[in-house]
Structure formats: C-alpha cells, structure tokens
C-alpha cells in the first residue's frame, strides 16, 4: 500500500512498474537534439485533421495506441486512463481517448499534468484499484497560442524569457510487475505564488513551486540532491532553472550539474528560436516517455527525480490582474524496485 512519508510525500511499498511508454512529436521537436526519441513524427502541424484542436487530440490517441502496441496490449487491458492537457476542459484528452472504451480520470495541472497523472495512477495501482493504467498528456504550439496568446498569424514579438509550447504527446503504461523503471515515491506539490504576473516569463512564475516541492521531498525523505543521478524539471526553461537553483542554494541545497530541464533538452537554443526553452504538458511528457524512461530501463540512469511544473492560470484571471499561481509535482523514478537512497 502507498504510505505517507512526512507531510507531503507518498511512498510506494510495491513500486508500480512503467511497462511501456511512447511519444509523438511535430516538426520542431524532430529538428531538436532529442529528435530521435519520438516513436512518431508528424511534420504537418494539423496531423491531417481540420483543426489544431483535433490535431492535438489525434496526438494523444496516437501516443496511447503506440504505448499499448509496444506492450502488446489492447485498450480493454487497461483499467483506467489518467490524462490531461492545457486546453479548456481538457478537450484533447477527452476527444483523443474517445472511442477507446478506457475509463478516464481527466486531470488538469497545466504543464505539471504528466507528473500528476503518474502520481495518481501509482496510488490507484498501489491501492489495488487498478491493475494497469495509462498516463497521457499533450500540448500543441498552435492550440496553446490560440487559447493563451494571439492568433497564429498575428505579428508579435516574444521577449527572451518567453517559452515555446511543444507540439508533443507522451504516454506511459503502468502496471504491477518487475519491469524497470519503477515509481518509488511521489510528492504532491503545494500552490505557490510569488507574485509574478508576466505571462511571458512562466519559468520565473513556476520556479518557486519547483523549489518548494523539492525541498518538501528532501525533508520528508531525509535525502539530498547528491543522492540522485538527475533532477529533471518539467519546463522551467533557462530563466526558471536559474531561479530554481538560486532558490534552493539559499535553502542549502546545491543542484549544480544534477538539474536539467525538459524545456531546455527538447530544443537547440542556438539554432531554434525557442527563447527560454520549451514548455507545455507534451514537453515534459515526451522527454520522460521517449528519453528518461528508456535511459532508466537501460540502467544508464538509476535514481532520478522527475518534477513537472505547471502555471495554474487562465487568460481570464491574468487579465483581471491576478498573479500566476503555480504547482510542481515530483516523481521519484528508479531503475531498481528497492534499494537506493530511500530504502526504508
């Protein structure tokens, strides 16, 4: 059974196994440094659909189907799907998974949703409520632009702190078993808000949430940054990563060389015009599903903290002058089912 450890962390006694994962991406993602991690690439941003919203749904559907195919399973072998995205009412998940017949737990955690879905699915598994679950999130540059910023053809300039919403989706299949990697623990984030109002600087808005969740995890588990091979943040970008390191250094944790960010890994900042880095639910999801999970499975990484950060805002409240509240959920992933820094 999942048990509470400290104030914020949930410890998995029989750690759920990630039995397969898959990711789908677009043209920009293919041209980035991680271009070869994708199972499927579609260079047409419409994915052969009439609208970008339909395209994003299609991406989730493709990612889930691919993850199932890799595990040699059909949809009816999955007890529950845990999915979400950035669009109003999480429509990409709803319409992407429509027709698959899998019970759906729709989640919203903005860009933190991939970690949120892994956390919820792991607890469902630990409780014996399901025997297999699929986690899936997506984001699409064009749907996010339309919903949060300007029409696509509108001529605007982005400041260097802005981030680029990834056109990508990732899906991971969780089950009981012995196949590496494993979800060992999760820390559910608290809502943090240090008053950032600039929607063009999401990294800065989310860094305090990431710092808080990491600190909570270290406190709850009596561990320190050196115990882990890597701490991968969701999508803080360059600006947010700098701030996260600074915030934690002041609290006595030195992340240097051990922290990296999905938003900075997915694109090449020198050649691709992505400013501070990538963002969106699909960014962290695809880097996790296509890159980190395979590395853990191959034992090239042993213990990592995957922490996706999300800005929990809507254009409405930002226009009303509200600051950007944010959250970060942490997943402790390990190539081993037991042992390591957190054996208790």
């Amino acid at each position: 059974m999942a048990t509470r450890k400290g104030r914020y962390t949930i410890w998995m006694e029989d750690p759920p196994s990630i039995i397969s994962s898959a990711c789908v991406g677009g043209k920009m993602e293919q041209e980035g440094p991680l271009g070869n991690i994708f199972d499927l690439i579609e260079r047409d941003s419409y994915f052969g659909q009439e609208s970008w919203e339909k395209a994003e749904s299609k991406m989730q559907s493709l990612a889930v189907h691919k993850a199932l195919e890799k595990a040699g399973l059909e949809g009816d072998a999955v007890d529950c799907a845990f999915a979400g995205d950035l669009l109003n009412q999480c429509i990409s998940s709803t319409y992407g998974l429509r027709g698959m017949g899998i019970p759906l737990v729709g989640l919203f955690g903005a860009c933190s949703t991939m970690a949120e879905s892994l956390a919820v699915a792991s607890v469902f598994l630990e409780a014996g409520a399901i025997s297999r679950g699929v986690c899936c999130t997506s984001s699409h540059f064009c749907t996010a632009e339309r919903q949060f910023r300007y029409p696509l053809e509108y001529g605007g300039q982005r400041p260097p702190t802005a981030q680029w919403t990834a056109t990508a989706s990732g899906a991971a299949l969780l089950a009981k078993g012995e196949q590496s990697p494993f979800v060992r623990a999760v820390t559910i984030g608290t809502i943090e808000d240090l008053g950032v109002t600039d929607a063009n600087n999401m990294g800065a808005a989310m860094a305090p949430a990431a710092a808080m969740t990491l600190e909570h995890f270290f406190n709850d588990t009596q561990t320190k940054p050196e115990d882990f091979d890597l701490m991968v943040t969701g999508d803080l970008g360059r600006v947010g990563s700098t701030l996260l390191r600074q915030l934690l250094l002041e609290r006595g944790y030195n992340l240097e060389h051990r922290q990296t960010d999905c938003g900075m890994m997915l694109y090449n900042p020198q050649e691709q015009d992505v400013h501070s880095g990538g963002s969106g639910c699909g960014c962290a999801a695809s880097v996790l599903c296509g890159h980190l999970i395979p590395l853990l499975r191959a034992q090239k990484l042993r213990h990592i903290l995957f922490m996706a950060t999300g800005a929990l805002m809507s254009p409405t409240v930002v226009q009303q002058g509200e600051s950007i509240a944010s959250i970060a959920h942490l997943i402790y992933l390990s190539s081993e089912k037991s042992g390591g820094p957190l054996s208790c």
């Binding site: 702190t161 800065a204 600006v239 701030l243």
Partner: peptide, 8 residues
C-alpha cells in the same frame, strides 16, 4: 531575483 535572471 527574476529581474536579474531574465535576459533583456
């Protein structure tokens, strides 16, 4: 802090 970390 944000001001210092954000490139102009």
């Amino acid at each position: 802090l944000v001001k210092e970390a954000s490139p102009p």
